[in-house]
Design a protein around this nucleic acid. Structure first.
Lengths: 240, 240
DNA sequence: GGATCAATATCGAGA
DNA sequence: TCTCGATGTTGATCC
């Protein structure tokens, strides 16, 4: 934890090139000003002139926010940044090579921007309630899947995808388990089907499919019962 | 397009409650200061004390950023915000009801924060190069799928998922098309399989599966050939 | 309001 | 590097 304000104030766009060069990679630059934005890459977009919030992080991440929503209207993660002047317009160019993408932010030389340069810290961050946790819990408590059930393996990679958990029941049948931390949808049900199909294609017929999730959508339940798979309603709050 | 700076400066945390109440929903509030963050909802997280960038948008969106990465470490879209004082700690509480989630940002009363209050504008925004565009293009140019092919329908909803496009070839067979604007993976290949299976389950056997994408992963290609599906390499740049 | 799916998704883990 | 799947995914659309 540290953090310090390195600059706070208004900057003329004509001085912005030098300003950005000075602070880029040394701190997080926050700008507020009128700009026009052009993006070309996997897709392309054009944002007409308006006042927006621009964040340039130390790792080259650029975010452009408007007044609403969690998502930036434009962005560029982990980019190389250059600033150039062409015909009375300052252009901040953020380039990424993989995928090849270019984000251009244009500002008029006659305008001003509000600028804030700060050194941001980084604290300890702990998260709980992920799918991984639920998988871990099931691995340690196989009886949640069924009586006399034993863990065989975890995160098994196949050409059909990665199987979260594999157990074996008392009769020797394999139990393939797909885990979802939220509502399971048709996609989750078919993911399970894929894995069961794969094992059957290997000539292993004694295979059972189980979907573990707090709940499932109607279509997902339909598909599960259609293929003879079981839904185990297990919630993350049961774990915690 | 408008935009104006309404406040710029340092604010003592003891005055921050009044400050936030004053500006919230009237403008976008940008804060930089030491904070500890607690989140409880679908999952839960705790971020230790560090200097972070906090954005409070007019619609109640709260974003907390550190010095790296496109993603905020914590957030709350579209929330109700309250500010309270407990034991020399100011807590900004952002609550969302669906799903039920609470984000708490704690700050010490003895600290100061850098604050910037701005009115952000909103400009015209146009984007091109989406999957929808590619679907549209194929619908208008069925010969890209094959000679003598005719469009039957678009975005067909089934219990197995939504089929992007359905064509009919000269022999009367249905052609089910799944479209991906980027690299198609195993999931895309199996999505197609689902749709074909569904039509066969309806007793319609003359069904062909086609995946349209600029490229596909090796496993995806393997699955496609295994089920006798075709990959049509079509790129969005061909469209534009 | 629920279900389904795209996204410039981003991000991280594993081979 | 590529592939694959999770995400507190968010956001939009369609029923």
């Amino acid at each position: 934890m540290n953090g310090k304000t390195l600059f706070r104030g208004s900057v003329g766009v004509k001085d912005l090139r030098e300003f950005i060069v000075k602070w880029f990679k040394r701190a997080t630059i926050v700008l507020v000003g009128a700009c026009e934005i052009i993006y070309e890459g996997r897709a392309s977009s054009k944002a007409g002139k308006a006042t927006r919030l621009i964040i340039i992080k130390e790792d080259g991440t650029v975010l452009v926010h408007e007044s609403r929503g969690r998502e930036p209207i434009n962005w560029q993660p982990n980019s190389t940044i250059t600033v150039e002047l062409v015909n009375d317009v300052m252009t901040l160019k953020a380039v990424r090579l993989k995928p090849k993408e270019v984000l251009k932010i244009n500002m008029s030389l006659t305008d001003e921007v509000e600028a804030l340069v700060v050194s941001l810290g980084s604290g300890k961050f702990e998260i709980s309630g992920t799918e991984e946790e639920l998988v871990e819990y099931l691995a340690r408590n196989p009886t949640l899947i069924g009586e006399g059930v034993e863990l065989v393996s975890r995160e098994v990679i196949t050409p059909y995808g990665r199987i979260d958990l594999i157990f074996r029941d008392r009769l020797g049948s394999l139990i393939l388990v797909e885990v979802k931390r939220g509502v399971a949808d048709v996609d989750a049900a078919f993911q399970l089907k894929r894995y069961v199909d794969y094992y059957k294609s290997l000539g292993i017929d004694e295979v059972v499919g189980v979907l573990v999730a707090p709940e499932a959508t109607p279509n997902a339940r339909k598909i599960l019962s259609q293929y003879g798979f079981k839904l185990k309603n297990i919630n993350l709050s049961d774990v915690r």
